[in-house]
């Protein structure tokens, strides 16, 4: 019989600065060496569908954790209320995101059965934050799912997001997988082409896939944006990519 039992639930995480935030940890119960995955939630919040993604990784043998990037803005609130509070406050500062995801990476590496390899994956705004973290943290693989705002014009920069993430590409520390929809407006195919050009200019290891008949958020099962074919192919790419880069 396969050893596919998992456990999942809420935990307390410590950011790199020592701040306590909420997190959701899903992991396989059998203690064979396994890789870790930090799942970065989208702007609509630290929600049920993101936690389901963590459980999906656990069912495939990864230890996965979702840091609640909105926790500070509304401790104990519903995901929707916390998302609204975070947006009203100007959004999550990039520096704070790096600290929180950095704490999640350390948490995963400290777990029983961890093989030391940790990847990061994020969706929508979390895709941008994945690119950000892959350029600023010691991780082993990164999956950017339709991250909007990686390519940013000067007028789009704010005190919370002071540097265009694409300009951090020279510091990318790991292989990157990018999954995009051809009908997306942010990132548009032009934005994706600019990312590719920058990754090539800095001789980074990456693979990008753009799916026809798909726009933004094609993985999001409960939404009208869901595209079954793109999602199914995308998940296969993710399993192959993490299987290669997070193996013992």
């Amino acid at each position: 019989m396969p050893s596919d039992r998992i456990e999942a639930g809420t935990i307390t995480l410590r950011s790199d600065k020592g701040d306590e935030i909420e997190g959701y940890h899903a992991f396989p119960l059998e203690a064979e060496p396994h890789g870790g995955v930090v799942v970065i939630h989208h702007m609509p919040g630290y929600d049920w569908s993101t936690k389901e993604i963590a459980r999906r990784f656990a069912s495939r043998g990864y230890s996965a954790v979702v840091p609640n990037l909105f926790y500070r803005y509304a401790p104990g609130a519903s995901s929707g209320d916390a998302a609204a509070a975070a947006r009203a406050a100007g959004g999550v500062p990039d520096a704070q995101c790096i600290e929180d995801v950095g704490g999640a990476v350390k948490f995963l590496r400290s777990q029983k059965g961890a093989n030391g390899k940790v990847g990061v994956i994020g969706y929508c705004s979390g895709g941008r934050q994945t690119y950000l973290c892959a350029c600023n943290l010691d991780v082993d693989a990164a999956v950017v799912c339709y991250g909007g705002g990686i390519v940013a014009t000067p007028d789009q920069l704010t005190p919370e997001r002071p540097v265009a993430v694409i300009d951090m590409t020279k510091d990318l520390r790991c292989p990157m997988l990018g999954l995009f929809g051809a009908e997306d407006a942010s990132p548009s195919p032009e934005h994706v082409a600019r990312m590719e050009a920058e990754l090539q200019r800095h001789h980074k290891t990456y693979e990008f896939h753009t799916y026809e008949n798909a726009g933004h958020a094609f993985f999001w099962v409960e939404r009208p944006s869901y595209r079954e074919e793109a999602a199914r192919e995308g998940w296969q790419r993710i399993w192959e990519f993490f299987g290669k880069h997070l193996a013992s």
């Binding site: 702007m43 609509p44 929707g80 947006r87 929508c124 958020a217 939404r223 009208p224 944006s225």
Partner: peptide
Amino acid sequence: AVVYFDHPQEAKVE
């Protein structure tokens, strides 16, 4: 009043 145009939490539009 915080106004934005983005993915909704509930409405069945993108």
